[in-house]
């Protein structure tokens, strides 16, 4: 318990100190890191705890961005962000019923397809509305955005830690291991999966809204970019998702990597992502966190 809290606390302290550097480059990197941590921790609530691997979390991110863009100027910024999370959560509840009926690779493909479908629906809708990208004037400055992202990362990390130890978490882990056996001992699997799906969607929705403010515009191809989904999964695999440490390590690793690569060889980024994914899935299924814990072998 103490051991598993050490890393989150270390990250938390670093995150609190960061703004005092006054470096907008560092704060920008910190913003990206916090967003990634919030996304991956949220993703683990569904995908690590139930075994339903989502390759479509970009849909929540994109919807959040869209909600914030649509409500820009009409609603106060905090309300827009809360609405972004709410819409993402409600969307997960609505599509969860049918989507969570399939397991394994079918679920992976279905979530991916769903995200692409929503992306093109939004593109069509936007062109009907005659707007191809929405500019957002007067977005808050980086310091404010960073503070919000940091709070989201902290909430997502604490949430993932708490859920894992809660009644809900125990039910999710049981159904991950064997759904039929879980049902037989009283776990309401359909309801629990839906709750996990919705919980894992809310914060990504807010993060999407925040990211739109950072770029100060909304454009569907970018907001619903499947790279977001791939990156989440890769961060979780590389970092490990057995507990809250993995997403921290995975997000940190890739944030640093992308800083290094984007600057020099942007095309290589996706290649490296793919290679690392294969390498870790095959040889280090417990991820970086597993290496740190001295158990790089078999995943739970």
């Amino acid at each position: 318990m103490i051991r598993s809290l050490a890393l989150p606390i270390l990250f938390g302290l670093a995150g609190l100190v960061l703004p005092f550097t006054g470096s907008s480059y560092l704060i920008g990197v910190g913003f990206a890191l916090c967003c990634s941590i919030a996304l991956v921790q949220s993703w683990t609530v569904l995908s690590a705890m139930t075994g339903y691997v989502s390759l479509g979390h970009a849909v929540f991110y994109g919807l959040g961005a869209y909600v914030v863009a649509l409500s820009w100027g009409a609603l106060p910024m905090p309300v827009g962000l809360l609405l972004a999370g709410g819409v993402a959560g409600v969307f997960a509840l609505l599509v969860g019923m049918p989507v969570l009926r399939v397991r394994g690779p079918y679920f992976v493909i279905l979530t991916f397809g769903l995200a692409e479908l929503v992306k093109y629906l939004v593109i069509i809708l936007e062109s009907e509305l005659g707007s191809f990208s929405r500019l957002m004037f007067g977005a808050p400055d980086l310091g404010v955005l960073y503070a919000i992202a940091f709070a989201l990362a902290a909430i997502a990390t604490a949430g993932a830690l708490l859920i894992r130890r809660s009644r809900l978490g125990r039910g999710l882990l049981a159904l991950r291991e064997n759904e039929e056996a879980a049902e037989t001992v009283g776990v309401p699997v359909v309801r629990l999966k839906l709750v996990a799906f919705a919980l894992s969607a809310v914060i990504p929705g807010v993060v999407g809204g925040l990211a739109a403010m950072r770029t100060t515009y909304f454009e569907p191809m970018q907001a619903f970019d499947p790279t977001v989904s791939f990156t989440i999964v890769t961060m979780a695999v590389v970092g490990g998702s057995d507990d809250a440490r993995g997403p921290l390590l995975g997000a940190a690793f890739f944030t640093i990597l992308s800083e290094v690569l984007w600057a020099r060889l942007p095309q290589v980024y996706m290649v490296v992502l793919g290679l690392l994914l294969i390498l870790f899935v095959l040889f280090i299924p417990r991820g970086l966190a597993g290496i740190f814990a001295g158990r790089p072998g078999k995943a739970a």
Binding site: R170, A174, E177, E180, A300
Partner: peptide
């Protein structure tokens, strides 16, 4: 159909 990846205790606690 054990919950193989969980501890024996966690199997019965759930």
């Amino acid at each position: 159909k054990p919950f193989g990846g969980l501890t024996v205790l966690d199997n019965v606690v759930v």
